[in-house]
Design a protein around this nucleic acid. Sequence first.
DNA 1: GAAGCCTACTTAATCGATTCAGACAGGAAG
DNA 2: CTTCCTGTCTGAATCGATTAAGTAGGCTTC
Lengths: 356, 356
Amino acid sequence: MSSRVTLQTVADQVGVSRTTVSNAYNRPGELGAELRERILTAAAQLGYLGPDAAARMLRTGFMGAIGLLFTDDLRFVFTDPDTTSFMQGVAETSALSGTGLTLLPAPPGVDLTDTAVGSAAVDGHIVFSVADGEPALEKVRARNLPIVMVDEPDLGPGTSFVGIDDHAGANMAAAHLIDLGHRHLAVLLGRLSSAVRSGRVSAAREKEATLRVVRERIAGYRSAMADRGLDPGELVLWEAGGNDPDLARRAAVNLLGECPSITGLLCSTDQLAIGASQAGRVIGRQVPHDLSIVGFDDVPRAATWDPPLTTIRQPMVDKGRAAAELLLEQIDGAAPRRIQLPIELVVRASTARVSR
Amino acid sequence: MSSRVTLQTVADQVGVSRTTVSNAYNRPGELGAELRERILTAAAQLGYLGPDAAARMLRTGFMGAIGLLFTDDLRFVFTDPDTTSFMQGVAETSALSGTGLTLLPAPPGVDLTDTAVGSAAVDGHIVFSVADGEPALEKVRARNLPIVMVDEPDLGPGTSFVGIDDHAGANMAAAHLIDLGHRHLAVLLGRLSSAVRSGRVSAAREKEATLRVVRERIAGYRSAMADRGLDPGELVLWEAGGNDPDLARRAAVNLLGECPSITGLLCSTDQLAIGASQAGRVIGRQVPHDLSIVGFDDVPRAATWDPPLTTIRQPMVDKGRAAAELLLEQIDGAAPRRIQLPIELVVRASTARVSR
DNA sequence: GAAGCCTACTTAATCGATTCAGACAGGAAG
DNA sequence: CTTCCTGTCTGAATCGATTAAGTAGGCTTC
């Protein structure tokens, strides 16, 4: 192993200047085709792998990569179907544009000082579903790079945002149940904030909610009740402790034990709805006959679950694509934009007309 | 926005040299505590965010990130439970060590010339389950960086490798069925090579297999038959066209239609076993009573699937952790190593004594 | 009290590319 | 014949940090 092969090595070999070799790679057309061919051949022979990434970055200030920030536990990030679908969308468009994709995990309880977060070699950040006031988000914002917020928090009109109308979606879900005759409704949600809690949500706890999406969804459920003459104050709120079917099953057992009159369960995600439907089996209430369940998201499993889940569909892969596109265009100098993706009520077999 | 804030800006402000400011960040202890405090305060006031990543990379040659190469379709990468579990393991240990994680997707049909693959700012690569002779792998190998192969291909003793004893695992799976009295066995596998095919595998097609793992598993299944006095030549091989439950369901319907005497189905992954068990329902053969199915991997769903799947467990998250650890230690100068993770037969309810 | 050794800095070379401002040859225009 | 392009290629500054080598002063140590 002698010293490294650089632009200069290739230039010396061919007998041209460094500049010309650089041009051979970055601006073909600025030099003769025949010379370019000679340079590329010589480079291949010398084992030159193309311009060094770090040097190019330093000189141009362009990293050729985008960062994807998560603050959830990694066990969740790679297990949750919504998160992985979102990542798929981001990965697709970044791969298509030849941009690298750097994962920036900032799981709870990890010291951020010597993490890639806040110092990664990226041209911009996508922030996926983060609670208000997360330190990792502040670290990323401090860098003054282009940024796209997804779902939460919403930083206002000056910052790009990709999301859906959570309020309207929740309204549709609750309206569907009420229109089927359900009068006693409860909400099963994952978490209101990064702090892990489970059990019935008190008014005080509800005030602590730092996750915009769940706040909006609760408001949407309530608005449907108010629209249809029910008292939104009677809506039972229950926290499972995380967006996980197992937690949801246990939570739903407790919820339905404590509030047996509930006939309609509004689950703020499909993962929770899946768990809740298992709870139905456990406590002997058949879905949808004795208990109607409506989810949110329309994850891939929702359609094949037993029973197939009634839910609000949102296009998670598209969300990832949109976020990546917004970020890439911003890196190219475009102004921040907001994108709201469409949602849709999908009626399947987990909801039915109330039977008692 | 004036010109950028650099080490020099901070140095000028405090009245020390650039070196001293650099030391304040990288080697506290090389300078007085009080001066260090003054420097850090000044930096914060000036909005200096710490040493520029690109400049540091250029100078030190150290990127602070590892690359994870996939050649599968992205739809698969983020959907497949094994792949995501593996990524979780990699992400965990890279996050713990403060190393960045860069995804390098090289899906089929994408031109690699202006992709991050082959020029990403990383210190080494993890190559996850890639077919023999993939161009993306050659690109990555050409960089002469530390590399860890996972599952396939196995580049031999000179290159780090993380995997399991696929042959032994398959042997255990087939032995289990044979010991339950099954005499007519078939293998349902995803793919033998990157080329998508489906249907019964001919001897010619079998020779084209470029995926080491599936080759080993087939050999393992056959070895169990030979061990127990069955003719390995009678083992039916069937390709689903991909590691996907839907494809597997269709393939299993065809397989069992064409070979109705089969009572034991060896699925080379749990995803396939899940699909095959649905096929059982479709064609009216109850699992395990009329059809025994054994999977491979023990994905999270396997235990909760109906019926719970008998399978060969392999620790995918640990595999990710091991791969990342091996790569990080190699980046630190250690020699390549090989790690073989343990496997285990997990008997659940998808297999039973043969009934006819 | 001179040699030697810390402590706490500074100076200057260096990493490998990009890019702006020329240089030079040859042809077109006047 | 001079001027002005135009197409190619060169020279040298520059990006922002790290780090080996050096310096200056203060403190031991015999």
